[in-house]
Design a protein around this nucleic acid. Structure first.
Lengths: 210, 210, 210, 210
DNA sequence: GATGAATGAGGTTTCATTCAT
DNA sequence: AATGAATGAAACCTCATTCAT
């Protein structure tokens, strides 16, 4: 009961920390409050985690591991590009439904310039961006996608998803509900128009002569 | 030169604070370091600002005021939608060139859950998003744009810009240089494919002669 | 011995704070010095007290509680007025012998215009003054005391005690010793001449056989 | 206009400082507030006074000088003791009417353990007490007063005056008005009963055999 | 004389972390 | 494993005082 699965108290602490971090931000959140929220003593937190930093890193890592696995599965799925993008969208919006606070926390602390945070976090973001970039490059090669700058487009794509996600997570109003309901399909459609190679007959004169 | 406009020292402090905040984050940045960076005494900072919070808020406010004016100008410009989006893109990337650190700071602290920060910051973001939303709605009515969900699309559009911006600001590698060079045009093209009314066989005259 | 009553360290802190406050005054006294005097870390003080203010208030409150109980006991004692005044005098001078520093502190900070201090302190002073006033009024009604203005007399009585007390506490010279030795009886005699119903030819049995 | 009388601005500053000190206490009062209240710049204060301490000391000194002169006049007046005490009472209550704030300030800061304050302040108090003591001793010798301990009685007398004064100055309620109106006569009567050698026929058994 | 921007030591307080129980 | 009293460095901020104008 204590030798295998994640100890019950550790779960409580992660749960509590996610909530308090998401509510106040990492730096303003205090160990006292996390301990109270988790209904354990402060000392207990230090049995399971080395420091406050460490809690956030473990939260990050778990999330990252899951996303990594998701992308790994996608990579080896052989699905067509369009389908893959659809899956990425679904994953993002499913996560919100599963744990809104965790998503908020990640959005908030993603850019915190703490070195250790950046090490675990940027690595994922870069990895994902690179994956999408490759996907696009490949898609262009296969003529499934229209020609474009894959680097820029990959980031733009992720940013679009993230921003829509943010709006739904940060506020909790009517619009958020609309977004959660309609965004996955709406974005899928948009992205296809954006990326698709389809019937784009005459693109002449599209460049600018600045 | 010291009797009317913003006092020289206040400028120094804003400069220094922008740098230190962008480097370490608002909470980790210390007044001591800001004072040293600005080459003034700590007390001097409190002569011009009420608190550490107040420094960030004033930095935010100035930036917000500029953006608000930009959007106000855009609103009354009567420019076609496509042109307006082009202008928004240009503005974003110009700001990076003008003050990379300020842009980084804003990206970083935009979501800090401090109430006072949110009050000044979210208001702008909402305002801008609403403006784009209206723009899209109007564009659809005029058949200049394809039908879509304007709320979601507005956020997605801003997110795309922001993410590409982030990538260019947060890192300082070769890719960042590429992005800064090519992103404005690339995104303009993308957005048009994304938003443009599809059955528009004759796209002639699409270039701008600015 | 450390699991139930007032923690040992809290006692140390109160002891140290009383000393440092009495020596330098509340505002000049520093937390650092109190902590050093109490041989605890500064943080420890904040474990037991909410603020510097709070230390003084707790010191005040304990003293006030004791005095209040003393006066409550007196009120229900049914002792003759003369005896009650005698007891009040004894109490005052006993307190000096018990904790000279505490008495000095109270004399010094009694008038500090801090709102929270006033709330706890003036309430007691008013209460005591009112009690003496009632005592005098009653004594006049019973013809045990000569007619006088009870309000003014009550304050004058307390002030006389306090001033003599002050002299003994603030300095530590030969005169102080004389005062401590003789003042209780001297003041008792004085007060009786002052207050006693004049045409009281037979004052026999005036001595106490306590 | 600048070589003789007290400069106008210095007066303003003393006025303002008296008010602010009396309101908040010496330590909490700030030079900024005094300057604002006096409608001068902070720097101006330092033209007339060496420090914040110095302002209070000058306020003290002026008051002390006046009282010293009063007592000097009394000493050489040759008035009977009873009359002298009457005059002391009158002086005290007149001062309240003349400058309530100054009286409050003196009551408040009289015990502040700052060395320089004590030097100027205790000297006066001791001097006055000693004067009254001598007066009483002399009165006893002349059989104008009943025998008593002059040291203790002198302090008790002053304390009584001071306490009644305090009550009238610190609060500003109906009772204060009553006190201001009636206290001088009431106290005069009381003191005479207290001290007078008059018809105190049988005082036998007045001592306590404790 | 008059000003107030500038100074920086030192104030109180917080909080991540430790460790004896 | 679990606790929470204890620690003390370092945070933000104040304010008496100075001095160039």
């Amino acid at each position: 009961m204590s030798g295998e699965a994640i100890p019950k108290k550790k779960e409580w602490i992660i749960e509590a920390a996610t909530q308090v971090f998401a509510e106040k931000g990492f730096h303003v959140a205090g160990m006292r409050e996390i301990a109270e929220q988790a209904k354990v003593a402060i000392g207990t937190i230090y049995h399971y985690f080395q420091s406050k930093e460490d809690i956030l890193i473990q939260i990050f890592r778990e999330e990252i591991e899951q996303r990594r696995q998701f992308f790994e599965g996608l990579r080896t799925s052989g699905l067509p590009i369009r389908e893959q993008i659809q899956r990425i969208l679904e994953m993002h919006f499913d996560r919100i439904k599963g744990n809104r606070r965790l998503v908020k926390l990640i959005l908030m602390e993603r850019l915190e310039p703490n070195e250790r945070f950046q090490k675990v976090f940027r690595s994922l973001y870069e990895e994902v961006a690179r994956y999408i970039e490759e996907l696009i490059t490949e898609g262009i090669a296969k003529k499934e996608l229209a020609p474009c700058n894959p680097l820029i487009t990959a980031h733009a794509l992720l940013g679009a998803i993230e921003a829509v996600t943010s709006r739904a997570v940060l506020y909790n109003d009517e619009k958020a509900a609309v977004i959660l309901r309609e965004a996955p399909q709406e974005l899928a459609r948009s992205f296809w128009r954006w990326l698709g190679a389809v019937p784009q007959p005459a693109l002449g004169g599209e460049g600018r002569s600045s």
